[in-house]
Amino acid sequence: MKCKDVSPLLIEYQENSLRPEERGVVEKHLRQCDVCRKEFKEIERLYQLLAKERVPSPEESFWTNFLPEVRARIEEKKKTRGLFFPRPRLVVGVLTVLTVAIVTVFMFTSDQRSLVELRSEQMEEVTLSAPELSSTTEELAEILSAGGEVSLSILLANGEERQLDLIEGILEEDYLSQLSLNSVLSELDTEELKKLEESIKALHIGEIL
């Protein structure tokens, strides 16, 4: 037997789970081959290391309270929404994650299209000057949430770091809290949705969503 055939068997050899005939072949090979013997020693040491680890025992009170707490959770669910309804926290969590992902993708896509742009085709583009931007975030949030009065892409294109920070703050604090996911998604056409999906996948978050 060659090294490439023996190597995949070494873990099972360590675990004593090989058939006797395979075990014999591996033992014979190990007596003759330094490379595989070294590899086997490494596997052995890993198993010794793993064997040292113990799950810390929780306090006795944890076990005493375990069943009552499970029962309390069951009763709570029965009372609030029945056991077979989706958990609101989960739904809110998923919506939050989706919304944040969408905004993140929008902030970093090459054409920097704004949500405001998508909300209104009739909008009038207005460029805000730095002094105007330095006003309170609430004012700008109002402009954004009114829709159709300012192009975020223009702000981003002309924006300095301070302006971008300001916009990011608004997106996080105000804009996100006022947007419903449906309203955002309903404004996207097929191509934009596809692009969004690709961008999210590229960020390695697609599997979570």
Binding site: F66, E69, V70, R73, I74, K77, L83, F84
Partner: peptide, 10 residues
């Protein structure tokens, strides 16, 4: 671990 049993109950 507690949630596992809640789901199991359901």
């Amino acid at each position: 671990s507690q949630e596992v049993f809640v789901r199991a109950y359901s």
